[in-house]
Write a protein that binds this DNA or RNA. Structure first.
Lengths: 391, 391
DNA sequence: ATACTTAGTTTGTCTAGTAAACTAACTAAG
DNA sequence: CTTAGTTAGTTTACTAGACAAACTAAGTAT
């Protein structure tokens, strides 16, 4: 039980605050930092010089004078190291190599046909090796790997269940640790997406936000006070199985009226099937294309989905009173086709005081939210404690 | 922006950890504290002597020797000061005088007939004065007042809206501040209840819990990581207006199928009215009494309520994955009459991995959860920073 | 040229935590 | 009833890290 503090703790905290300040407000001078966070100039100087020594910060020469000596401007050294983020989806796998600021250097898409853990693991290994060959020279190299998985991940980094992949109790991190020892993070796809949008996307300025992953099913990542809320067993955010129509359609989870039976990609396709979509098996692209061309059936299908989305979102607004809701994953790419119906329902169904301050937005990182969020996990760990690198 | 730390911060943190340790594990010795929290013996000695100087801790003489010098046992001085907690309900007002450990010394129930802010305020003033006359001699006296209100309270302690009282934008704290300057806390009734049960009741050992206030409507307080989650505008937890049946009964909020139209005290009475309850106007006591005597209609009414409660609770379990759900307020007093139906529905409707670790319990503080939670707010503020007392 | 400003470093001081030695007070074994 | 060993708590000397103030550096404005 080591919760008590001493000076080292203070130093660590202050150093991390200084680094965060540089990351957020760069370029800036030591004097700016001191004024900004209230730390003494001398202390800032000392901490900055340590950060420079450890290659996390660089000086880029003098800035504009404001009537006195020119300030020496500081920059976060985003190329001190790199991270790999992987998003395991239902038909493919997206892997990205990013710098410490989350800029994508390389990207690799691997189609998946066989979903057995062994095969997927093999693909992951190959892809990581491939990305590592693209790695620029840097002091720290790959600082870690993050993986987003469409399933439940427990607090020990173990994939407890991933129905869409047919996985049960898979120890992804353990298996990879043999090859790339150290900083490996596994999390639910929606949780990773939430972190991604919070750090690099639409949620940059929000402390309390919900990321809604709108794919085959519906998942979510809940960010409270700037941090991901994980729940007791790390299983929070399974909003797709919230009942919104007590006697609604049967869900694969065994219940009736789950939100995802009414408002997900699968819900859209199921509904399309009942209206005998053009006599052929309905597919997402087809419906979206038709709707964009003004096809009546397609438009009304999407309106219906939008309005059902709104019901669940209004619930989340009432329960959690978030600042922001970010809608991501595949279906969000067609956002403009259901946005109006969705917003109208939220407006009608949420309490007036709540909706005043809640904004609804679409993922700014598009299809990369999860991969970027996954990559950010080892980056955050590294910047908090720049020791644990990989390999 | 003063987030950076210095030694004073360390000292404050450590002192507060020492005090918390004494509060939780008393009686114990300085040596126990040092071993328990990892702080050096000398540091503990110094902090404890300051706590003794400020009357928050007392020595109660030697304890059992374990083979050497006898330890000097320490006790939290629960009578260093007192607090007042007030619960404004729809028909009356409960006020309690408690010591710093939340033990109730005096209790006062005031019936309310006129709900105008002025009248209620006058009653509050009178009641506070009355309780103050019962106050024992103590170094700090009344350290503060906390008030739980059935409505939305914004981040500035202002009651934005309390439909059951007919209040709009009432500045309770401001009005009271003139009489009892200083440490006055106003919060939503369910939030206060959540804190009460967390600190003194069923939730003592839980970090993530939901307190469900089951009264005329349904409210909730959400505790995340041991702290109340307030949302963006301080309005989180309005679970009563979560849609669980898209085309259900009309709610006073304007929507259909809100949880509280199906599972609250009002829902019970409304439902009873439709079955022509004994030819007379149904009332809660009557229905509960009949159910206890095995009356078929009453039992089935309560089963229905229980099962509707379960639907909403399963939603909360899936979304928030809490450790514990505590059911409080008036209807919870009849818990055994709907518990089975409720648990069965939660079991059926929540995801299997989630419900494994979620317990459902009834408020251990009975009808006092809110008043105790309200009183705890100034106590916590006082113990964090023992300066601000009242008057 | 001179006065004033702003940036950043150096120096000495202060606070608070730690280790180690010490005092106090006990138990248990011979 | 010594004596050795153990546990509780205090005292002392030391250290880390933040701070204020003085100082150097390098600019602007008049």
């Amino acid at each position: 039980m080591k919760i008590t503090g001493d000076q080292q703790l203070i130093k660590k905290m202050n150093k991390s605050i200084v680094l965060d300040t540089i990351r957020q407000r760069q370029p800036l001078s030591r004097a700016d930092i001191s004024a900004g966070i209230g730390l003494n100039k001398a202390t800032v100087s000392s901490l900055v010089s340590e950060l420079i020594d450890s290659n996390l910060v660089t000086e880029i020469g003098p800035g504009e004078s404001s009537g006195g000596r020119k300030p020496t401007l500081l920059l976060f050294n985003k190329h001190a190291g790199f991270a790999i983020g992987i998003d395991i989806r239902v038909s493919d796998l997206l892997a990205i190599l990013v710098d410490l600021e989350g800029n994508v250097l390389h990207e690799k898409n691997v189609p998946l046909t066989d979903f057995s853990p062994e095969t997927v693991l093999e693909q992951i290994r190959k892809t990581i090796s491939l990305l590592k060959r693209k790695l620029p020279e840097s002091p720290y190299g790959i600082v870690g790997v993050g993986i987003g998985v469409p399933g439940l991940v427990n607090e020990k980094n173990r994939v407890v269940s991933a129905p869409n992949l047919g996985w049960d109790n898979v120890d992804l991190a353990g298996a990879l640790d043999a090859d790339f020892s150290g900083n490996i993070h596994i999390d639910n796809e929606a949780n990773a997406g939430a972190i991604g949008e919070k750090l690099y996307g639409a949620g940059r300025d929000s402390l309390n936000l919900i990321y809604l992953s709108l794919g085959v099913g519906i998942g979510s990542g809940i960010i409270v006070g700037g941090e991901l809320y994980r729940g007791t067993s790390n299983f929070s955010g399974e909003v797709g199985h919230m009942t919104i129509a007590e006697n609604g359609p049967l869900c694969r989870c065994g219940n009736r009226g789950c939100w995802e039976t009414l408002a997900s990609e699968k819900a859209l396709l199921d509904r399309a099937a009942t209206v005998e979509w053009k006599g052929e098996a309905p597919d997402l692209e087809g419906i979206l294309k038709a709707a964009k061309q003004g096809d009546h059936t397609a438009v009304s299908l999407l309106n219906e989905i939008g309005s059902q989305l709104g019901v669940g979102l209004a619930n989340l607004v009432n329960i959690l009173n978030p600042e922001l809701i970010v809608i991501g994953n595949r279906l969000s790419l067609a956002g403009e086709l259901f946005e109006d119906a969705m917003l109208r329902t939220i407006e009608n169904r949420s309490l007036s005081y709540h909706r005043k301050k809640t904004h609804v937005d679409f993922a700014k990182l598009g299809i990369r939210s999860t991969a970027l969020g996954a990559a950010s996990m080892p980056i955050t760990a590294f910047l908090t404690d720049p020791d644990v690198t990989i390999e």
